[in-house]
Design a protein around this nucleic acid. Structure first.
Lengths: 246, 246
DNA sequence: ATTTAATGTGTAAATTAAACACATTATCGA
DNA sequence: TCGATAATGTGTTTAATTTACACATTAAAT
């Protein structure tokens, strides 16, 4: 992380507090963005959290958030915050939900728009600055600051739903991956066990994996073949399926 | 519509303009809610629109929106606005997306949270006050004010997706309906034709329709049986299906 | 070399979706 | 009144998809 980014980060951590009196006086609504940044490491789904800087919530973890600038597009704000905190700029980022309970933030009336992002933990060295940032297993995330537990739960559910309908998971994997890697990812995100042979069949039928004719290295046993995802082919085919199922 | 509601409506139509100078001076963000209210009538999916009150957009139609009060929950604001405009209070209402481009509103920086709602046109007499409100066929909606076309498109897509996964459609039908009514609804929302016999089989297999042992009245030909939806049974069963399909 | 723990490849059964045909019932008009 | 009309109501047959399950192959570790 550059010095400039570090500075921007410190500046941020005060920004919501700084407007507290202003919020109370003007009787107006402030707008923030919170990012739920998912990663995948050691065959577990992770989420990046930051230690809360509010005394009321000291010791608790919270999501990465910041105020939206008055003349900044909402989506731009989300990308800016993601970039500030992780250095990432070329990743999947999707709006999930907006949380607007009156008392959701102790500093005053702050409505927050939540974005969800998936990054590859190995590809991007996150600066664990002053132990403020930490990758948590999603399984053990609990008791977050503010209403962040609710936000996190919503985003995880959305991720589980979306990952079944779109190839989001590939952003979490290395460029070259084995089918076992892919299955581990899906099992971690969806929290289910799948049949290895049917899983394999499923993806081969989709015909969206490119066989790289390479093998895993340093596998403890028989190495598997390596693949990459055919994003181009996926973009071309537009699904138009209609069914009723509830 | 009561006099009080009429007054509230008139007051509203100025509210965004009133804050224009304030927005410019304070350099802050205002928050609004826009409602996309879907209805169903004459076997067509409709959407309730209001004539734009801004000169810049005179003659164009727009969604029903209003500013969120500083000390009002976001969801409450959505229900308040829906109630103000339609008198409805006990309906399905769901947040869809938040739109926050800097220049999306001519009055200044207004970020808007969009909600989608489904109501039964016949059950709720909407006061078409001064020709300001009108039910439009969704098929012919185009060229809305502001970024409302984009918002509408997003909501329609979301509706089409959600209606396949949840029994939302029943809110648009009378309490007693025939299977033909139900199929007409789905065909209108999804914009597809379905096989009558397979459609029927689908819903009978779900076992969520209650046979009322009544027949349609005044049908031009052989009348069909009437049913109602078993909401209680639906609430009890929780779907936990996992699959990958993209 | 043998063991071990993976990968890689099918096949059969069950379930679900799609395509399709005909008898039944009420209305309408001659 | 009676046939024509235009719906509803009830299958069956076929195809496609999902699920369950078995065995040979490969490389590493001992």
């Amino acid at each position: 992380m550059s010095a400039a980014e570090k500075k921007a980060l410190e500046k941020k951590s005060k920004s919501i507090h700084a407007i507290q009196s202003e919020l109370e006086n003007t009787n107006r609504i402030a707008l923030s963005v919170d990012c739920v940044i998912f990663g995948f490491d050691e065959n577990k789904l992770k989420v990046l959290l930051i230690r809360s800087d509010l005394k009321k919530y000291s010791g608790k973890w919270s999501l990465l958030g910041d105020l939206v600038f008055p003349k900044e597009d909402l989506d731009d704000a989300a990308y800016r915050i993601l970039k500030q905190r992780t250095g990432l700029s070329d990743v999947y980022l999707e709006q999930v939900h907006t949380f607007g309970a009156v008392d959701r933030h102790p500093a005053g009336r702050v409505v927050t728009v939540t974005y969800c992002s998936l990054i590859n933990v190995q590809h991007h060295k996150i600066n664990i600055l002053d132990n403020e940032l930490h990758w948590h297993d999603v399984q053990t995330v609990k008791d977050l600051a503010f209403d962040h537990q609710q936000i996190f739960d919503t985003c995880l559910k959305q991720l589980q739903k979306r990952v079944q309908e779109h190839p989001l998971g590939f952003n979490l994997l290395p460029k070259k991956f084995s089918l076992r890697d892919l299955q581990n990812l899906y099992e971690a995100i969806l929290d289910v066990k799948m049949d290895r042979r049917n899983f394999r069949k499923k993806f081969f039928t989709m015909d969206l994996l490119i066989d790289l004719n390479e093998m895993e290295q340093d596998a403890p046993h028989r190495p598997g073949k390596l693949y990459k995802f055919n994003f181009e082919k996926y973009e071309k085919k537009q699904k138009k399926w209609v069914g009723i199922d509830f």
